[in-house]
Design a protein around this nucleic acid. Structure first.
Length: 420
RNA sequence: CGGGGUGUAGUAUACCGGCAGUACGCGUGCUUUGGGAGCACGAAGACCGAGUUCAAUUCUCGGCACCCCGACCA
């Protein structure tokens, strides 16, 4: 992809409203565009990075037997009344009338919808378990959107729902989902850990949140370094300084909630009629779980843990391109060489952003640092003279010269590492 | 929803009750290419409304928008 044709315009200065690092850099490097408070466009760079993240999520969801579907965002009032949540969600749900005065809401979550779908198709224990997920825009009338993609009125979420005949089967899947979440975060280059939390309006049970340590977070998590116990401070008001499990001292950390998984029990299945016949022919409500992961928030969180003064430093698994190829100088030989290398890399399935723009070298370097593609390759008079190319990893300081063949091998090796 | 703050060009900002300036970006031309180049010329701006005033971008009031803190929060 030639950068001269690519729809992205970097900025030297960050808009004054941006405070969080991820917000500043995503704006400056032109990954996102703000439409209103808490409402953003994912521009081509942002969309590419987001799609890489979704690919990882889909692989891990599919690996635990979940199947993808896509539900509507526009919900009629009646289905929300059947669970009693139309009233409960007033304030947070966008609710309005269409021109024939029928009430609708924009979906902040999808328990009602998915439960109705499953209820009408599953009638026997033989059909269970079922695990379905979607990746979709969610709408919540947030009182205070903040920090760019961190908290929005419209954001993208992966939500998974599971239905089981027995508590044992649910527990088994819940653990699998939990492990899948940890793999997702790890593959995205962030370290997340599970903590105990409250289920809010979803369930009275304790639930599990996945937290990432970053000062951009909104939660305080108590962590016991000794035994690994961790809990959201909101439910641990009575935990003073010592771990309830091993009595060792606990420490407080600012964390960001990147995912949240719930045991819903039979609350929704009973209200929406999701029953099945068990082995004894007895009618039973399905046992449900739901598993949420804010994907646009995760994208911002990844930036929060991977940046320096100059810009973003994407993990290879998420970067919008694998290589940022810079051609310095107007000389045709340089351009020809750069284009040849771009062609080679692309043939190997390596994503290349080729900076062919007619601007100064300094600006190209600055943009490369800002955009944060993991590997930078420079073609110039100097490298041409030596018959080599210069490579430099975004996360490292040192550049080195390699041959064209070596570059291809290095890029292929990097790509393999990420895919495995 | 409570508190605080800010609205000047695409971005960041300056000044001012009397013709709104700078930098980057943008356009044209020439020169430039290893860390945000140079010269010349050019396009582009006071959130909206009301009030005070001879005169309002500036002062007052109202609205709207955005940001931050808190409350809330799959």
């Amino acid at each position: 992809m030639k950068q001269s044709l690519f729809f992205a315009k970097t900025r030297k200065e960050s808009p004054k409203d941006a405070v969080a690092a991820s917000h500043k850099f995503l704006l400056r490097a032109d990954y996102i565009d703000q439409l209103a408070a808490g409402i953003y466009t994912l521009l081509p760079l942002g969309q590419k990075a987001h799609q890489k993240l979704l690919k990882i999520i889909r692989e891990e969801m599919d690996a635990i037997g979940a199947q993808e579907l896509l539900m509507p965002a526009l919900h009629p009032k009646a289905i929300w009344e059947s669970s009693g949540r139309w009233e409960v969600y007033k304030g947070e749900m966008y609710q309005f009338q269409d021109k024939s005065k029928h009430w609708f809401g924009l979906g902040p979550t999808h328990e009602e919808i998915i439960t109705a779908i499953v209820a009408s198709r599953v009638s026997s224990f033989r059909d269970l378990p079922v695990a379905l997920y979607q990746i979709q825009g969610k709408f919540r009338d947030e009182a205070r959107p903040k920090a760019g993609l961190m908290r929005g009125k419209e954001f993208i979420m992966k939500d998974l729902y599971s239905f089981h005949a027995t508590k044992e089967d649910f527990d088994d899947f819940y653990n699998k989902a939990s492990e899948a979440y940890l793999r997702i975060f790890k593959r995205c280059g962030v370290e997340a850990f599970p903590v105990l939390a409250s289920g809010g309006a979803f369930t009275k049970d304790m639930t599990k949140e996945f937290m990432i340590k970053t000062k951009a977070g909104e939660d305080i998590t108590l962590i016991c370094e000794h035994c690994g116990w961790a809990a959201n401070k909101e439910i641990s008001a009575n935990v003073s300084k010592n771990c309830p499990v091993c009595k060792e001292k606990v420490s407080e950390h600012v964390t960001l909630e990147a995912g949240h998984i719930f045991h819903l029990g039979t609350r929704y299945s009973e209200k929406l009629g999701a029953f099945f016949l068990d082995e004894n022919g007895k009618r039973q409500p399905m046992i449900m779980g739901c598993y949420g992961l804010g994907t646009t928030r995760l994208l911002a969180a990844i930036v929060e843990v991977h940046y320096d003064k100059k810009g973003i430093m994407w993990p290879e698994s998420i970067a919008p391109f694998d290589i940022h190829l810079l051609a310095l100088g107007k000389d045709n030989k340089i351009k020809q060489e750069a284009e040849a290398i771009e062609g080679h890399l692309q043939k190997e399935g390596i994503g290349v952003l080729y900076d062919d723009r007619d601007i100064s070298a300094g600006e190209k370097f600055a943009d490369a640092d800002l955009i944060g593609i993991p590997l930078r390759v420079v073609i110039s008079e100097k490298t041409l003279g030596q018959g080599m190319v210069e490579i430099k990893y975004r996360k490292e300081d040192a550049a080195r010269m390699v041959t064209r063949g070596e570059l291809i091998n290095i890029a292929k090796a990097d790509l393999n590492r990420v895919n495995n």
